[in-house]
Design a protein around this nucleic acid. Structure first.
Lengths: 111, 111
DNA sequence: TTGTTATATAAGGTTTGCCTTATATAAGGA
DNA sequence: TCCTTATATAAGGCAAACCTTATATAACAA
C-alpha cells in the first residue's frame, strides 16, 4: 500500500533529514549527500525509496537530477493520522454517555 | 530516535489496523487478533512494537491485558509533518521574491 | 491441585533493508 | 574524441523484521 512505503520511508533518519532539506527547496543529489557521513550511492538509494513512496519528484537538468518535495506525498499520511484522531475524539465525546449508561446499570465491576 | 520507531511502527498495515481499532476504544489481545489471518504470537509482537513506539499503553485486568491508544504517541509524528509543511510554505511564500530577483538579474538560464 | 484461558517468549527460517566498493551511463567541456 | 562530473546500478555482506510452531507463565475456576 501507499501508506506502507510512505511511513517506512519516514522511519529512516537520513531520509527524514533529506525531506527536511528539500522542504527548503530543490537540491541535487550531491548537495543532499554532502551533510551526511554516507556514500553517494547510499543517498541515491534513499532518494529512490523516497521517490517510490511518492514523497519526492525529480527532474533532469544537464547532468544533475534535482529533487523536490512532493507536497501531495504527505497528504495520505496526514489523512490517516487525522482519521485516527477523529475516531478517537468521536469516542471520547461519547464517553459521557457511556459513563451515564454505566451508572444506570450499577452492576458490580471487578476489573 | 522516537520518530524512527513510531514511523516504522506505522509502516505495517496490521499495526495500522490495530491502531485504527484501538481508536474506537480499549481491546484485549485476543479481540485484536481475531480480524487478522496471523497467529496470536504475531499480534503480541506487533503490540510490543506499538508499545515500544509509545503508540499504545496497556493495563492488566485479570488474565487479560487490554490495550488502549496513547494520544500522546502520535503527537511527535504530527509535529514533524507540521514542521515540514511549515518550512515548505515559508519557502513557497518567498517564491514571489525569488521570481522578482530573477527578473532583476536577467541572466541567461540554460537549465 | 488440575485444567483452561490469555498472553508472552523462544527458536528457527526467510525476506527485507542499509551500507560499502566497484563499475556503468550520460552530459559537458576541451 | 577523451576527460570529468553527476548519478545510477551491481554485487556482496550483515543486521533487522516478519512469521510460524512450540513452550512458558499467570490468573482464574473447579
Amino acid at each position: 500500500m501507499q501508506l506502507d512505503t510512505a511511513f517506512a520511508a519516514l522511519a529512516d533518519p537520513t531520509r527524514r533529514a533529506i525531506l527536511a532539506r528539500l522542504a527548503k527547496g530543490e537540491a541535487t543529489v550531491m548537495e543532499l549527500a554532502k551533510p551526511f557521513a554516507v556514500t553517494q550511492p547510499a543517498i541515491s538509494r534513499h532518494l529512490k525509496v523516497l521517490e517510490g513512496a511518492g514523497l519526492i519528484e525529480r527532474r533532469i537538468a544537464g547532468t544533475t537530477r534535482p529533487c523536490r518535495l512532493s507536497a501531495a506525498g504527505l497528504a495520505p499520511l496526514e489523512a490517516w493520522l487525522d482519521q485516527i484522531r477523529r475516531t478517537m475524539s468521536a469516542n471520547y465525546d461519547r464517553l459521557d454517555d457511556v459513563l451515564a449508561a454505566m451508572n444506570d446499570e450499577r452492576k458490580g465491576d471487578r476489573t
